[in-house]
């Protein structure tokens, strides 16, 4: 099964289980690292460097709980006279411009932000812009390579649901949401942050 974690405005975390394969499945199991080898270094790695990085082509998801995802171009090109009813959801790829949705958010219940690869950080800026610039109030869902170590940052960028990759554990994910007790900087989640704090906290000598 696929696990969808939902962060509610109250801070409560809900879990929705969806049919296997709804989200990106688990990759093959990892070998246990041999520390004798790791601690002996990896020698000359120059020949292992592959400068070219494969770019994402299509979303990792096609459907959500209430139907199919719409792609950005189709959404922008839709016939506005066609008053379709029912919930609608859109999926944004890392290369797509969320600002093109300005004035086109009405009728959207959910925007999925594709994290094609866990180290492709464009989704964080996309979510931030959806929340803070466009004022999108609906659900923003991280899909694709959604690993527990990213969840804390995703929340801070205004993402409030998480399509966990198949191998990610729910308990790890819940723990990850509470990784840091405080944060320094403003984020699209509008959480209190230290750089704006007015109080003078306690200090110990270095």
């Amino acid at each position: 099964m696929s696990i969808l974690l939902k962060l509610h405005d109250t801070g409560a975390v809900g879990v929705v289980t969806l049919p296997e394969g709804t989200f990106r499945p688990a990759p093959p199991a990892n070998p246990i690292p041999d520390m004798a080898i790791v601690n002996a270094g990896q020698g000359d790695v120059r020949s292992l460097i592959r400068p070219n990085v494969k770019q994402p082509e299509s979303p990792s998801v096609t459907a959500w709980e209430a139907g199919s995802f719409v792609r950005l171009d189709d959404w922008l090109a839709r016939d506005v006279a066609d008053v379709e009813t029912g919930p609608r959801a859109l999926v944004l790829m890392p290369t797509e411009d969320p600002l093109s949705l300005a004035g086109h958010l009405d009728g959207l219940d959910l925007i999925a932000v594709e994290f094609a690869k866990f180290n492709d950080g464009r989704g964080y800026s996309i979510a931030t812009l959806l929340r803070s610039r466009l004022g999108f109030k609906g659900e923003i869902r991280a899909v694709g390579d959604v690993l527990v170590d990213q969840l804390f940052a995703m929340v801070r960028c205004g993402i409030n649901s998480f399509a966990l990759r198949g191998d990610q554990r729910e308990e790890d994910a819940r723990r990850a949401l509470a990784t840091f007790p405080a944060v320094y900087q403003w984020g699209a989640d509008n959480r209190d942050f230290a750089l704006a704090a007015k109080r003078q906290p306690d200090r110990a000598a270095a």
Binding site: N30, P33, D149, R175, T179, F180, Y184, A197
Partner: peptide, 28 residues
Amino acid sequence: IYNDIDQSIVDARVRQFADQTDRYLSGR
């Protein structure tokens, strides 16, 4: 000089990295 917020963030980062390393060492 760190305040209690700075210290709590750095301490949490230590725990987070220890957890990440544990998951790596156990193959997860």
